[in-house]
């Protein structure tokens, strides 16, 4: 199916860009008229994926993080976050809640948050080549105020 709208951004894996990454997606997805809660779920999930690129994929180095977001007529938003970093050896293990290789200050909940806050999550990775996280969420269509008025009038 053809998306009705699409955007792409890429930026360096500096931790100061975490806020830019999630805000850019949120501002784009806002066109689907999500609730504050839906938007907050998307922001949180994107923040987790971007943080993974910075903390794991490009650990001790700076690389480029690529975000692509598609919107469909159905209200579905598909967000893809890609890096060309170190890759994940064991995806199943990496996705287990509380598993982390990043030390004491990381909770190991990144994928668990993405999974529970989004409708779907797919992770593909090649060691030495990079990782792609694809997630989607369908924004419930609500009657807009002007449409409501039309039917009422």
């Amino acid at each position: 199916m053809k998306p009705m709208n699409e955007m792409a951004v890429s930026f360096l894996s500096c931790s100061s860009n975490e806020s830019f990454g999630r805000s850019a997606v949120a501002m784009f997805v806002a066109q689907l008229d999500p609730t504050i809660d839906e938007l907050s779920d998307i922001k949180t999930a994107v923040s987790e994926a971007v943080t993974n690129c910075i903390v794991h994929a490009y650990r001790d180095t700076i690389g480029i993080i690529y975000i692509n977001c598609k919107m469909f007529d159905s209200g579905k938003a598909v967000i893809r976050i890609r890096d060309k970093g170190c890759g994940i050896e064991n995806i199943k293990q990496a996705m287990q809640p509380l598993f982390t290789t990043a030390g004491d200050e990381r909770a190991g909940l990144g994928f668990a948050v993405m999974e529970s806050f989004m409708d779907s999550l797919r992770v593909s990775s090649k060691v030495g080549r990079g990782t792609t996280v694809t997630m989607s969420k369908t924004i419930a269509r609500r009657p807009r105020d002007d449409e409501k008025n039309k039917t009422a009038g």
């Binding site: 949180t44 943080t51 004491d104 200050e105 990381r106 909770a107 909940l109 948050v113």
Partner: peptide, 16 residues
């Protein structure tokens, strides 16, 4: 106004 799982890491670290 916003918190991701880094906030959980922050809490867990302070507990330790």
């Amino acid at each position: 106004s916003f918190m991701d799982s880094s906030g959980i890491g922050l809490i867990m670290g302070r507990c330790k």
